[in-house]
């Protein structure tokens, strides 16, 4: 009876797991297969049929040469905005978290509270005021109008704060002071090298957030040559007759080609995740155990 129960509960668990896996994986498979088909096959054919290599190379060719290699330009813009934002975010959030965790100053608790508050605030809610600000300093349309808001990353400050307050004992910093470090060297030679897993974690989260951000660059950048990928994709959608029947004047884009652009937009996050996986896990566990 007990054995039967166990088999039954196991089976149930696997069915649920398989159900969810299918739910999430099927669209990805469909997306990966779509550039190998023609637009017509994509709509009427078997969704899991594999098309031809010819279709694939055609779709790639059309997509990449579209509007004078616009896709590559957007890819480049995305990289500049994302990494520019990350560099500034890291340069601010790691020292800020360290300061919040290991120094006493008036307003420290308030600052922590504010950090938490802005952390839970949806980024889109700030887009309009940010636009007005950027407009006031005549930055709208420049890369800075995207990079600077991207570099605002309170989650990173909070992660660094948690890390420093839980995993870096005060005595370690005291030892460095006694060993002859001034405050800058305490941070630079002891606190910063220890934060490696947190740097990886902040980099990854900031990268995903920046790379996928659509609304902010959409509002800030009026000129198509400045678009990052997500905004560019929107441009492509407008050029796809299936989604925008009234489109005219532009070279039409078909769904297999659109799928290529989507895959290009997705790939960097996947690649970064695969490479960063190990340090991410150690970063997320940082502070869980204390030596």
């Amino acid at each position: 009876m007990r054995l039967f129960n166990r088999i039954w509960s196991r089976t149930f668990a696997y069915v649920v797991l398989l159900g969810f896996t299918a739910f999430f994986v099927v669209p990805v498979i469909w997306l990966l297969l779509s550039p190998t088909k023609t637009d017509h096959e994509l709509v009427v054919g078997n969704p899991f049929a594999i098309g031809t290599l010819h279709n694939l190379s055609h779709a790639i060719h059309v997509m990449f040469t579209f509007e004078d290699y616009a896709l590559l330009n957007w890819l480049k813009n995305s990289a500049i905005y994302s990494f520019g934002g990350i560099v500034i975010a890291l340069a601010c959030s790691i020292p800020a978290g360290y300061g919040l965790a290991h120094t006493q100053f008036i307003g420290r608790r308030t600052l922590l509270g504010v950090t938490l508050f802005v952390m839970i605030m949806p980024a889109t809610a700030l887009v309009l005021p940010l636009f007005l600000e950027a407009n006031a300093v005549h930055a709208v349309g420049t890369p800075w109008s995207v990079i600077l808001p991207f570099s605002f990353f309170p989650f990173g400050v909070y992660l660094a704060y948690i890390f420093y307050s839980s995993s870096v004992p005060k005595d370690l910093l005291a030892a460095a002071r006694i060993d002859g470090c001034n405050e800058w060297n305490v941070f630079r030679r002891v606190a910063l090298p220890l934060a490696r897993p947190i740097i990886a974690l902040v980099t990854f989260f900031a990268f995903v957030a920046n790379w996928n951000n659509f609304f902010l660059p959409f509002v800030m950048l009026p000129n198509s040559t400045n678009y990052p990928l997500p905004v560019g994709l929107q441009d492509l959608l407008a050029a796809t007759p299936a989604f925008n029947p009234g489109q005219g004047g532009q070279v039409p884009i078909y769904r297999p080609e659109l799928a290529i652009a989507t895959i290009v937009a997705m790939a960097p996050v996947l690649i970064v995740f695969l490479f960063a996986q190990r340090s991410l896990v150690s970063g997320m566990l940082a502070g869980a155990t204390k030596e």
Partner: peptide
């Protein structure tokens, strides 16, 4: 005088070795 200028050395209870 700041700790680094006192020319003292200290051994801590939990050793406080630099893990990296």
């Amino acid at each position: 005088v700041s700790p680094r200028d006192r020319d003292i050395a200290m051994v801590f209870q939990n050793y406080a070795l630099y893990p990296h």
